[in-house]
Amino acid sequence: MSKATETAIQRHQPDFWKASLALFSGAFVTFANLYSTQPLLPLLAREFNISPAAASLSLSVATASLAMALLFTPGLSDRVGRKSIMVTALLLASVLGFVVTFVQHYSLLLIIRGLQGFALAGLASIAMTYVNEEFSQQCRGLAMGLYVSGTTVGGMSGRIITGSLTELYDWHLALQVLAGISLACSLIFAFALPVSKHFSPQSLSLKVMAKGFAHHLRHWPQLGRFLHGFLLMGGLVTLYNYVSFRLQEEPYQLTEAAIGWLFVIYLLGTFSSTWMGAKADKFGPRPVLLICILLMFIGLLLSTLDSLKVIITAMGIFTFGFFGAHSIVSSWVGQASNEYKAQASALYLLFYYAGSSLIGSVGGYFWSHWQWFGITGLVLTLVCASGLIALTSKH
Rank of each mutant, 00 (worst) to 15 (best):
Q10K: 05
F24K: 06
A27W: 03
Y35H: 05
Y35P: 07
T37H: 12
T37I: 11
L41V: 11
A45E: 11
S56M: 05
L57I: 13
A62M: 09
L76Q: 02
R79Y: 04
K83W: 03
M86R: 11
V87T: 15
T88G: 13
A89L: 05
A93Q: 04
S94T: 03
S94R: 07
G97L: 05
V99N: 10
V99Y: 09
V100N: 10
F102M: 12
Q104C: 01
Q104M: 04
Y106W: 12
Y106C: 09
S107C: 02
S107Q: 14
S107T: 12
L110R: 14
L123Q: 09
V131A: 05
F135S: 05
Q137D: 14
L146F: 06
S149E: 07
G150W: 02
T152P: 08
G154L: 06
G155I: 04
R159D: 00
I160H: 02
T166Q: 11
E167Y: 02
E167H: 09
L168W: 11
L168M: 10
Y169C: 00
D170Q: 08
D170G: 00
A174P: 05
A174Q: 02
L175C: 08
G180N: 10
C185N: 02
F191K: 10
L193G: 14
P194E: 14
S203W: 00
L204V: 12
K207F: 02
G212L: 01
A214Y: 07
L217F: 06
L217K: 06
R218Q: 11
R218K: 15
L223V: 03
F226K: 05
G235K: 01
L236R: 04
L236D: 08
V237Q: 12
V237C: 03
T238W: 09
Y240E: 13
N241D: 08
S244M: 02
F245D: 03
Q248R: 14
E249M: 14
P251C: 07
A257P: 05
G260M: 06
W261G: 07
I265C: 04
Y266Q: 02
T270N: 06
F271V: 07
S273I: 05
P285T: 09
V288Q: 01
V288N: 01
I293Y: 11
G299F: 07
S303Q: 09
V310A: 15
T313H: 10
A314S: 15
G316H: 13
F320G: 03
F322K: 11
F322V: 05
F323Q: 11
H326S: 01
I328T: 02
S330P: 10
V333E: 04
Q343E: 14
S345I: 13
S345T: 15
S357P: 13
S357E: 03
L358A: 03
I359S: 12
V362Y: 00
F373R: 13
F373I: 13
I375S: 03
L380M: 15
V383N: 11
C384T: 11
A385H: 01
G387P: 01
A390I: 00
A390H: 01
A390Q: 04
L391Y: 14
T392G: 07
